[in-house]
């Protein structure tokens, strides 16, 4: 598996049992969540197991992390998704086991949340289940999205999501991309903006994520933060 081949950079460090992955629409939250789960399960030095992934996206009807469930389950990751016909719905349904899974999180739980403040609102109904000492809430930042292309936009998004979720961010993931048009320059520009937002807000910059084929073209010395190589799982039918 390419995602587990020797990373020429430092690997992402996951510190808390509960990791809430949030961001604007199209920032790449689901792809990052799926890849992070896969990376951790394959990383033998990572011991906070078992690893589960929870799809909390109630805003998007398609291209959600639940679509990669079968693949993740094979690797030993536990997917937590709506069941039956609700699997296909975009209704604000919170399964009873969701609250339980958050409160009793053993090992590592990755929560993939829907986009923008609209998607993050689901967190407010669960806010009392999150213990501030056991969770990180991480913003996935894509500088190529219109509403998070500059500092002002990022700060606005952070504020809106924090208000809607009733939770505070603890960190940032730089995931700047332009789908198939992504190049090294785009990834590097994204890191720059993420560093600026990190400096302005005091939020920790956890890691940068980018497709393996782009990372292969970047010099080791050019990135000084941990790196999560991506192998896309949430593809369009013709890809």
């Amino acid at each position: 598996m390419t995602s587990h081949r020797l990373n020429k950079w430092e690997s992402p460090k996951i510190e808390k049992p509960v990791n809430i992955i949030v961001g604007g629409y199209g920032s790449g939250k689901s792809e990052v969540s799926v890849n992070l789960a896969r990376f951790l399960v394959l990383d033998k030095s990572f011991t906070a197991r078992p690893i589960s992934i929870m799809d909390l996206d109630i805003a998007n009807p398609y291209f959600r992390s639940r679509e990669a469930s079968a693949e993740l389950e094979k690797l030993g990751i536990t997917p937590i998704n709506p069941e039956g016909a609700q699997f296909y719905a975009d209704l604000p349904i919170i399964l009873p086991q969701i609250r339980g899974a958050i409160e009793t999180a053993a090992g590592t739980l990755i929560c993939d949340v829907g986009g923008d403040d609209v998607g993050a609102r689901v967190l407010s109904s669960l806010a009392t289940s999150f213990d501030s000492s056991t969770y990180d809430m991480i913003l996935v930042l894509n500088a190529n999205r219109p509403f998070t292309s500059d500092m002002a936009g990022c700060l606005k998004t952070i504020g809106e999501i924090e208000t809607a979720s009733r939770l505070k961010f603890t960190g940032i993931i730089s995931n700047t991309h332009l789908m198939d048009d992504t190049d090294e320059e785009i990834v590097m520009r994204g890191i720059e903006l993420s560093k600026e937002v990190s400096a302005e807000t005091g939020l920790k910059l956890y890691f940068v994520s980018a497709e393996q084929k782009i990372l292969d073209k970047i010099k080791q010395t050019n990135i000084d933060i941990p790196v999560l190589p991506l192998n896309r799982s949430l593809l369009k039918p013709w890809e």
């Binding site: 190529n144 991309h177 332009l178």
Partner: peptide, 14 residues
């Protein structure tokens, strides 16, 4: 410059 957009947003902006 190119931006990344969801079809629905792109239709709106167009």
């Amino acid at each position: 410059a190119k931006v990344l957009m969801k079809g629905n947003e792109a239709i709106a902006e167009a």
